[in-house]
Design a protein around this nucleic acid. Structure first.
Lengths: 246, 246
DNA sequence: AGCCACAGTTGAACATGTTCAAGTCGTGTG
DNA sequence: CACACGACTTGAACATGTTCAACTGTGGCT
C-alpha cells in the first residue's frame, strides 16, 4: 500500500515535453531517449521481455544503465513504448480502411484483423505484455490515466467507424458502441494471446464469426421486440462503465 | 519461445504426491512445505506480493531460501497456493448457498458476492495476482492445464447451481451456462480489481444489476423470437470456446 | 572570459529472485 | 552396527532490475 500514485506523470525529468510534440524535439536528451527506445523495441522484439536486460538495452543504445533510468522509471515503461509503436502502426494500417467504402461489418473485421496482424510477430512477447498491462495502476494498463491518450486514440478509430456508418441502431447504443468495440478489441487481444493454435488461426476465425453476429445484434437493437433487452443492457452498461469515468 | 512446457507438473521433487491427498501426508518434507506455504500466504496478505521477499518467507518459515526453492519452482508458485486457499474458502462459503432454496438469481448473486468477499481483504495484492495470472502458460493462469483442477472445482459450483434450477432456458445454453458463469465470475474479479471506488462498492452494485439481467437473458433464450440470437450466439461460443478444449 | 545552474551521464552499489555444489539426516540393508 | 542412498537442507554465488552520489558538458549571464 506504500506508493499510492502510480500514475506519476510529470515526475520524470524528461516528461514535461513528453505529452506533445516530442517528434519535433531534437535536443541531446531527446536523441538519447530515442536511442534507448528503439534499442528496447528491437531487442524486445528479438529476444522477448525477460531475456532483454536493461544492461543489454543500455549497451545497445550506447549509454549507461543509469542513463536509461533517467528517461524511464522502470523497464515496464519501455514496454509502454513498444505498445505505442504497435498502436501507431495499427492506426496507419486502419486509415485506408476507414476511408474505404465497404460495409460496417467488413470494415470492423478489417480493423480487428489489422490489430491482430500488427501484434502477430510478437505473440510470445505479448503474453508478458498482457501480464504487465493487467495490473491496475500500471501505466501500461489500458484503463490507467497514463494511457488515456492512446486509449482515446484507439477509441477514435471506432468512433470514426460508427459515425460513418448508416447501419440503423438504437441511438443510445450508437453513442456507446465505440467504447464497446474498443473493449471487444481488448478482449480479442487477450483471447489471441492465449490462442495456442498455429498462427493463432482460431482467433482470426473468431473475428470472422463474431463480427457478423455483432452486426446482427446492433441491427436488432432498434427493433421493438428487443427493446427491453437493449434498454436494460444499456442501463447495466451505464452502471458498469459510466459515460464519464473509465 | 525457449521454454515450451510451462505446465511442468511432476518435475518438482515433491510434486508426485501433490495431486492427491497431501493433507494426509505428515512426512518431514510435507511439514516444511506447509510451513513455507502458510508463511507465504500470511506475509502476502500482510505486506503484498512485492514487499514479501523470498528471504522473508524462508526466514518466517524457519528454513533457508534454497529450501523454499526445493518445494516451489518460483515465487509465483506460492501465489498459486494463496489462490487455492481463497478458492477453498469460497467453496466453503458457497456450500450453504447451493443447498439453500432461494431462486436462481439470488443464489447466483450470493455466490458472486461471496467470491468478492473472499478476495476483499486482499484488493491490493489481487492487482499483482491478476498480472501473474494473465500471462499465458503461467501455472496460475485460469486457462492453464496446471490449474485445471481448481478450474473444474470452480465450474462445479456453477454446474450445481444450473443443474438444480428449474428456470426454463434453451437446453444448449443450459449445457454451456456453467462455463459461461465461471467466465463471468472471472470477468467480475478483473473488474473488481480495477474498481477504485471505496470498498469496491461499484462492483457489488454491478453484481446486483447484472444478475437480474442475466436471469432475464437466460429466460429469454427459449423464446421463439430470440431463437436466432440464441442459436447464433451458441454457434459463436462453440467457435470461441469448443466444448472440448479450454 | 569566467562562472553558474542544471540537464545529462556514469558506474558502482544495492535488493531480490534464482541456482547450485555441498552438506546433513534418517532409514533400510548387509 | 556400519554403510549406502536418497530425501532434505544449507548458504554462498549469480543475474538482473533499480538507486544514487558523483561527474561532465552546455548554454546563458555578467
Amino acid at each position: 500500500m506504500g506508493s499510492v500514485t502510480h500514475t506519476d506523470n510529470g515526475s520524470s525529468p524528461a516528461a514535461e515535453q513528453a505529452a506533445r510534440g516530442r517528434a519535433a524535439d531534437t535536443s541531446r536528451g531527446e536523441q538519447t531517449r530515442q536511442a534507448i527506445v528503439s534499442s528496447a523495441i528491437r531487442l524486445f522484439g528479438e529476444a522477448g521481455y525477460e531475456k532483454t536486460t536493461m544492461r543489454a538495452i543500455a549497451a545497445d543504445a550506447g549509454v549507461s544503465v543509469g542513463n536509461a533510468y533517467y528517461y524511464f522509471p522502470a523497464k515496464e515503461a519501455l514496454v509502454s513504448e513498444f505498445y505505442l509503436e504497435l498502436q501507431r502502426e495499427h492506426l496507419a494500417r486502419v486509415e485506408p480502411i476507414l476511408n474505404g467504402g465497404t460495409s460496417f461489418g467488413d470494415r470492423l473485421t478489417a480493423i480487428l484483423r489489422e490489430g491482430i496482424e500488427v501484434w502477430a510477430p510478437h505473440h510470445a512477447f505479448a503474453g508478458r505484455f498482457i501480464g504487465i498491462a493487467a495490473v491496475p495502476g500500471s501505466p501500461v494498463s489500458p484503463f490507467s490515466t497514463a494511457s488515456s491518450e492512446s486509449r482515446e486514440l484507439a477509441t477514435s478509430i471506432f468512433h470514426r467507424l460508427v459515425d460513418s456508418t448508416d447501419v440503423k441502431m438504437d441511438p443510445q447504443l450508437r453513442a456507446r458502441l465505440p467504447q464497446l468495440l474498443w473493449l471487444a478489441q481488448l478482449g480479442l487481444v487477450v483471447y489471441w494471446v492465449h490462442d495456442t493454435t498455429p498462427g493463432q488461426r482460431r482467433t482470426r476465425s473468431v473475428v470472422d464469426l463474431a463480427v457478423p453476429y455483432l452486426e446482427y445484434l446492433v441491427g436488432a437493437s432498434r427493433m421493438k421486440i428487443f427493446r427491453p433487452l437493449t434498454t436494460r443492457g444499456l442501463t447495466l452498461l451505464e452502471a458498469v462503465w459510466p459515460r464519464a469515468a473509465g
